[in-house]
């Protein structure tokens, strides 16, 4: 079980949250990118071996949406990497 830090409620059990998917790239202007880049934006989700930024919804709590960094190797919630945007 993970304890996820909600900015409103503090640390809460993972069971109170619903996973909202990884944080993807910003939506590009479809007229300014190639077809391959557009398809990559639409279909490829971040799946690194290591820290990944994820969205979570405190659905059975205060209703807040939040983002965390989770290390896919250890399942630990970690600090954002230094080069994170």
């Amino acid at each position: 079980m993970m304890l996820i830090h909600c900015p409103f409620c503090g640390k809460r059990s993972e069971s109170e949250f619903i996973y909202g998917g990884p944080v993807g790239a910003d939506r590009p202007n479809p007229d300014a990118v190639s077809d391959a880049q557009w398809v990559e934006y639409l279909t490829v989700t971040p799946n690194p071996l290591g820290p990944v930024q994820e969205k979570w919804w405190h659905a059975r709590g205060c209703g807040e949406w939040l983002t965390i960094w989770r290390d896919t190797r250890t399942h630990d919630i970690v600090e954002a990497p230094e080069n994170a945007q």
Binding site: C9, S13, S15, E16, A59, R60, G61, C62
Partner: peptide
């Protein structure tokens, strides 16, 4: 007072 779960229900 806070929202949480009781027997899996909000």
């Amino acid at each position: 007072i806070t929202y949480s779960e009781v027997f899996g229900i909000k």
